[in-house]
C-alpha cells in the first residue's frame, strides 16, 4: 500500500521550505513509504483514553520576572549574518 505519493512528497517539501529535484522526489517517496509503513505498527496499540505525553518530566510553565538583563550587542548579533546593513539583517526584496 502506498502511504505517500510523489505529488505529496513535493507538497511536503514545499511546506518544509525544501526544493527536491526529480530524482530526490523519487528516492524520498520510496524511503518515506517504507518508514511510514513501519509506523503503522502503532495502530496495533489501543490508546483509547490515553493522554498524549509531550514531556517526560511534568512541569509547570516557567515564569520569570520581566526585568532587563544583559544581552548581546547589535554588533555581536550581526557578526554571523550572511548580509547586514547598519543595524539590520539584509535579505532579498520581499515586496515589489
Amino acid at each position: 500500500m502506498e502511504k505517500i505519493n510523489r505529488d505529496e512528497v513535493a507538497y511536503v517539501a514545499n511546506l518544509a521550505r525544501l526544493t527536491l529535484d526529480g530524482e530526490a522526489v523519487i528516492k524520498f517517496t520510496t524511503q518515506l513509504n517504507k518508514i511510514l509503513l513501519y509506523m503503522d505498527k502503532l495502530n496495533e496499540v489501543d490508546t483509547t483514553g490515553v493522554e498524549p505525553m509531550s514531556h517526560a518530566i511534568a512541569r509547570k510553565n516557567a515564569f520569570r520576572s520581566d526585568t532587563v538583563a544583559a544581552s548581546l550587542t547589535i554588533e555581536a548579533s550581526l557578526a554571523n549574518a550572511p548580509d547586514a546593513k547598519g543595524s539590520c539583517f539584509q535579505v532579498p526584496r520581499v515586496i515589489e
Binding site: I4, E8, V9, V12, A13, L15, A16, L18, F28, L32, I35, L36, M39, L42, N43, V45, T47, V50, E51, P52, M53, S54
Partner: peptide
Amino acid sequence: MIGTYALSSGYYDAYYRKASQVRA
C-alpha cells in the same frame, strides 16, 4: 520531511498524536 508530514493537516492525529499516546 517525516516530521513535517507527521505534523501536517490531516495526518497529525494519525501520527504525532498517536505516537505521543504510545509514548505515555
